[in-house]
Design a protein around this nucleic acid. Structure first.
Lengths: 149, 149
DNA sequence: GGATTATCATTTGCATGCGAATGAATTGAC
DNA sequence: GTCAATTCATTCGCATGCAAATGATAATCC
C-alpha cells in the first residue's frame, strides 16, 4: 500500500526536518546573539577586529597571513579587517626584511592600550553570552563546539 | 610591592584571556565549518536561502517580515535573500489584499520541487556537521546552543 | 474623526566572509 | 642553477548581517 494522507494535519512531505532543530540554524542564531551582546559592550570595534587585536597582543608582530590562520580568517577577510584597524591607528604595517612577500602587522601603542582596556569587557561579553548556562553546562558547550570547529 | 616580571615567559599582561577559548570565537569557527560543509553539498544555494525555502515549505505564504521573524533575519537581510530567490524563480511575490503594507512570499512550483530535493541533502549536512560527536553529545550540544540563542 | 503611534518594506552604508583570479616572491625538485 | 610548484598579498564579485533613515499604511488613543 502506498502512503495515504489520513488527516488534515498531514504535512504532505517529509516529516522530521525542522529547520529550527538543525545545527546550522541554531549555530547561526547563537552567533547572532553573541554579536549583539558584543556590540552592546564594545560599540566601536567588531568581534573580528577585537580578535585581531587580542591575537596580536599574544603573538606580537606577524604576517597578515599568519594572523589570519591564528584567528580563522581567510586572506581576503583579514586584509579588510587589518586595513580598517590600520586606518584607525591601532595597528602598524611593515615589510618583512627577508621575505618581501610578507606584510608584517603589529600593535601600535594605542592599539596596545586599547586591547588592554577591552579585555575586561571581553570577559563580560563571554559571561553574558554564557549566562543562560550553569558553569558545568558552559564548559560542556565549549568542549562540544571545539569538537565541531 | 608592585607586580614584577619573574621569568622570560611572563606575558606582561592579563593572563587567562585566551581568544581561542572564548565562546564567541568558537561559535564563529563552528559556524564557518558548517557553512563550508553546506557549500560542499549544496553549491547553488546559501544556508540563509535554504532556510527561507524550508520555512516557506512549512508555513506556506507569509509576509516578508513574518518570514524574517521565523528564520531570524532582520528586514534588510530577508529582503536581499528573497529578492535573489525571486530572481531565480524559486519564490513568488505578491501584494497582501487587506494590508497593503505587506509583501506576500510563497514558493513557486520550482521552489517547491527544489526544497523537496534538497531536504535529504540538508539532513546529510547536519549529520556531517555533527559527525565528530556521539549521538548523546549532539543532543546535548543542540540543547545548550538553544539555551544561548 | 483626527492625531499619534506602530508596523511593513525599502534603501543606504558599512563590515564580515569566501571563491576565484592575479602578480610578486620564495621554495623545491631535478 | 633553472623551472615548476608554492606561498603571500591583493583585488573583484557576490552574499549575508545590521544600524539608521525614509515612506507608506494600519492601528490606537482621545
Amino acid at each position: 500500500m502506498g502512503r495515504v494522507a489520513m488527516s488534515p494535519d498531514d504535512p504532505g512531505h517529509d516529516v522530521g526536518y525542522r529547520l529550527q532543530d538543525q545545527i546550522g540554524f541554531i549555530l547561526r542564531k547563537a552567533h547572532q546573539r553573541h554579536v549583539a551582546i558584543f556590540a552592546a559592550h564594545i560599540a566601536d570595534l567588531t568581534p573580528p577586529q577585537f580578535a585581531a587585536l587580542a591575537k596580536l597582543r599574544d603573538v606580537g608582530e606577524t604576517s597578515q597571513n599568519q594572523l589570519g590562520a591564528l584567528i580563522a580568517m581567510d586572506a581576503a577577510t583579514v586584509k579588510g579587517v587589518i586595513d580598517r584597524l590600520a586606518a584607525r591607528g591601532l595597528v602598524r604595517l611593515g615589510k618583512h626584511e627577508v621575505d618581501k612577500r610578507r606584510l608584517l602587522v603589529g600593535l601600535t601603542e594605542e592599539g596596545q592600550r586599547t586591547v588592554e582596556e577591552l579585555v575586561p569587557l571581553a570577559r563580560t561579553i563571554t559571561e553574558e553570552t554564557l549566562a543562560p548556562l550553569s558553569a558545568r553546562e558552559a564548559t560542556t558547550l565549549l568542549q562540544l563546539l571545539a569538537k565541531i570547529s
